[in-house]
């Protein structure tokens, strides 16, 4: 038996909106630690890892580890029916073939339940090693989204370079080139407006902008995004999910042949 009650139901709505276009079907894993998901896009270029820790739920009951295969588009359709202020409860029986999403309005005057069919998904779970990154950039998530959107109107790939000057996002296309440099800036009124660059050594990697743009659909989840880079490793683009966890997108680089 599984019963997870999330007062801030809008978080789950936002999570689904940020992954549904990247991944079609995925297994949600439920354990004492929390509600999690790891899945790759169909071409295995990007991987998403979500964790919502059990402590972040108002009520968290998970009698035994459960893996629930869901079509993320269908799940997003159901969660769209929840109001932004609604409390969302996820319920499932061990061995059952459905999951129920219950939506309660804050004043308890409207209660809805949506039952969705589960599916069997063969998914491979990948071990993600703890990495030492050459550079970690923390910046406003809206700024990062703007940069990815702007650059994708010029080119298909972005070169992200971190030096002591700052972080540079560059692209080139048929019509020309573009370079955007963001410098460290910690003298801001609000901490969420800061740009912080921790560099162990300079690093420069190339990525497909199409995927970066897809990751920025998680922007409503967090004011800040963290971009972690190491030579010839997938970049990690992380958005915190309130105080309860994170959504991390891994993107494999384009490498010189």
């Amino acid at each position: 038996m599984l019963e997870l009650r999330l007062v801030q139901g809008s978080l789950l709505k936002k999570v689904l909106e940020s992954v549904k276009d990247l991944v079609n079907d995925a297994n949600f894993d439920c354990s004492a630690t929390g509600f999690s998901l790891q899945a790759m896009d169909s071409s295995h270029v990007a991987l998403v890892a979500l964790l919502l820790r059990s402590e972040g739920f108002e009520h968290y009951r998970c009698d035994r580890n459960l893996s629930m295969g869901m079509n993320l588009n269908n799940m997003a359709k159901m969660l769209k029916c929840a109001g932004n202020d609604d409390i969302v409860t996820i319920k499932a029986d061990d061995g059952g073939d459905t999951v129920t999403f219950m939506f309660e309005s804050p004043t308890q005057d409207k209660i809805a339940d949506f039952e969705m069919k589960l599916m069997d998904i063969d998914s491979e779970h990948l071990g993600i090693p703890e990495a030492e990154f050459q550079a970690i950039v923390r910046m406003p998530s809206a700024e990062f989204a703007r940069i990815c959107k702007d650059l994708s109107s010029i080119g298909d790939t972005v070169v992200i370079s971190v030096t002591k000057e700052g972080v540079k996002f560059s692209t080139r296309g048929d019509i020309g080139t573009a370079n955007i440099v963001c410098r460290q800036n910690t003298t801001v009124d609000k901490p969420e407006d800061a740009t912080v660059i921790e560099m162990q050594e300079p690093v420069s990697l190339t990525f497909a902008l199409r995927y970066m743009n897809s990751f920025t659909k998680a922007t409503p989840l967090s004011n800040q995004v963290t971009i972690s880079l190491s030579s010839e490793l997938p970049v990690v683009v992380e958005y915190k999910v309130a105080e309860m966890g994170y959504i991390r997108f891994y993107l494999a680089p384009k490498l010189e042949e």
Partner: peptide
């Protein structure tokens, strides 16, 4: 030219 790598070439199955 550059070639798109895949996640599975960096992370292995567990």
């Amino acid at each position: 030219g550059s070639k798109q790598s895949t996640i599975t070439s960096f992370f292995s199955k567990v």
